[in-house]
Design a protein around this nucleic acid. Structure first.
Lengths: 334, 334
DNA sequence: TGCCGCAGGTCAATCGATTAAACAATGTTA
DNA sequence: TAACATTGTTTAATCGATTGACCTGCGGCA
């Protein structure tokens, strides 16, 4: 910048203002400065500018776990929204590790990010958010938004799927198809997503007067779904045999579908499967997966917005899910 | 930092050195400073430090397109390596758009990144790299590494899969299973990955004295593979019918497998399918996909290293692929 | 003629950390 | 005892950009 100023014959201050089209600078000067900048291959130093302005266009985005493609889909939308707002992504992948997550938040603050979008790792508590939020009584240091997974009793903007509703929709869909023995596959008690979906499903089943669903918790992996499906189909008790499974996540559902196929049968004829998320590939596997769609774009974009500008009141927003009927749920005579 | 200094009763300079465990500072002072830092909730301002040191721990990582999960897998390994090196990820997603890619590189330089890892968008030329590499005759401004996709005649470190070999291995595998009419599905002429894989396959087929393979270019999408498979199976010419397909990418192979299943048959009995990449789910679909594994971790890590420290000579490194035999290639009598 | 306002700049302090050089207070050596 | 190391700390400049306060020259107005 000094070079530009010297080249044009003005001071650094003028050059700075000229580049930002400050009204105090005459058009002629501005043109000359701009030209010189290009000619000299000037690279704007945003970090220096941020230092002075004590505000930054970097937004931290932390994924709890990148191996689940659904988080990747969130990331894409978050990135798109942030780019649209002239912000940049400072990315962290927590690998489901609380320490890594805290470390990342720490680094993010050191790097001087202007906001945080977080898909919290399972087991995250307020204490783990300390780097961004040292003082419980005050607000977080920078606008912070949780997406996809909620944390209860936390006074931070949260943008979530309405997971209870999603669980209920899944159950209702199966019930409408005549299923009475339903099994829940995947999830656990350590994320709001899993808890809420399961609770929603359980409630819908209770309301329909059906026997409580069997629950098979497990990691959100294709492999788990695959094994679970094969185990279920191998059971020798035809009376207690579930006819349909609600998967905590599409990822598990994909595994179950593969497992069912591997057992030599199909979802619709032996064990109906309904997923949740509506990941990109859900409609492109065979047979296409019936699932509850999560509004990943809506959540990602709104979350990103809340990380840029603090929303009026810290709120938890729950976006409505949608049932996507495809081919993995069969009708049962009932 | 000033607060700490005042609190302890030393100057800012001392505090700074104490925090970095400079040998000139006495242990007592250091302890006091460290304690004060914790007590006051001090947050280190890395940007300011970088400004002074004119070097940065941020590394730009630009993905050509995040919708292909394989790039996500690369990202995971790149991130892991960079974290291990004490670097952070400044992420960009180019959505297959040259302008977006250049813009991102520009922003990255403004942000003052210390290195760049790039999976170039199709059609990238030297000119598009100008933000990081304004002067053709000089080196790039910061260590820059291309991964996964190569750019010919470019004096930059490139870490790639040996794609010719991968293509050849795929063809050889099919040939060994007795296939004589092979079709190539996916890719195009605009990425080194696609060109090389196809060329490798074509060469292996020629060497085996078989008729040249039919080529069906198309986007790297499940949908394209699915449609392609159905089209191929619908053909009415039994003589000209290919018995096996080499897919440019696993993503296409997944689609083809689904398409074949949808047509009411299976890969092994009607149209064998071999993919390339060995994405995570390849072994977890039904039937498990035979494919050529790309060393994503090796490429990601090495690429990251080259973006941190310029390797001795700008080289293109080609990591060897591996054949993974699973269940989508059937034996043909012949 | 004299004062005012305004357009267009310049000056200098500032953001938060780093670092070479200077300095003060010790202990060492001749 | 005087000169000299040594150790630990301070001083002040610096990185690159921003910004509020100050300056200059010109035209307008009474």
């Amino acid at each position: 910048m000094r070079d530009i100023a010297e080249d044009v014959g003005v001071t650094v201050a003028t050059a700075s203002m000229a580049l930002r089209a400050h009204p105090r600078i005459s058009p002629q000067t501005r043109t000359k400065v701009t030209e010189a900048a290009v000619r000299l291959g000037y690279i704007y130093n945003r970090a220096a500018a941020n230092l002075r302005q004590t505000q930054s266009s970097l937004i931290a985005v932390c994924l709890s776990d990148a191996s689940n493609p659904v988080f990747n889909e969130f990331l894409i939308h978050v990135e798109a929204e942030l780019r649209g707002q002239g912000r940049q992504v400072f990315l962290g992948i927590a690998r489901d590790d609380l320490t890594l997550q805290s470390q990342f938040l720490q680094t993010a603050m050191e790097q001087g990010v202007g906001g945080v979008v977080l898909i919290p790792v399972r087991g995250t508590t307020r204490a783990h958010l300390r780097p961004v939020w040292p003082d419980e009584r005050a607000e977080p240091l920078v606008p912070t938004a949780l997406i996809s997974r909620g944390l209860e009793g936390l006074n931070v903007p949260q943008v979530l799927n309405d997971d209870r509703r999603a669980g209920a929709m899944a159950a209702e869909c199966l019930i409408a198809h005549g299923h009475r023995r339903i099994i829940w596959v995947g999830g656990g008690q350590d994320t709001s997503t899993a808890r809420d979906r399961q609770a929603g499903a359980a409630q819908a089943i209770a309301q329909a007067g059906l026997p409580a669903m069997e629950v098979l918790h497990g990691p959100t992996l294709r492999r788990f779904g695959l094994d679970a499906a094969q185990d279920i189909l191998k059971r020798s008790d035809p009376a207690g045999q579930p006819t349909a499974a609600i998967c905590f996540s599409d990822l598990i559902a994909f595994g179950m579908v593969a497992g069912i196929l591997r057992s030599g049968t199909t979802p619709a004829e032996s064990l109906s499967v309904i997923g949740c998320d509506d990941m990109e590939e859900a409609e492109l596997i065979h047979p296409p997966l019936t699932t509850i769609a999560v509004d990943k774009e809506g959540i990602g974009r709104l979350g990103a917005q809340h990380a840029v500008i603090r929303p009026g009141a810290p709120v938890v927003t729950r976006l409505p899910p949608r049932l996507i009927l495809r081919a993995t749920v069969g009708q049962v005579a009932g």
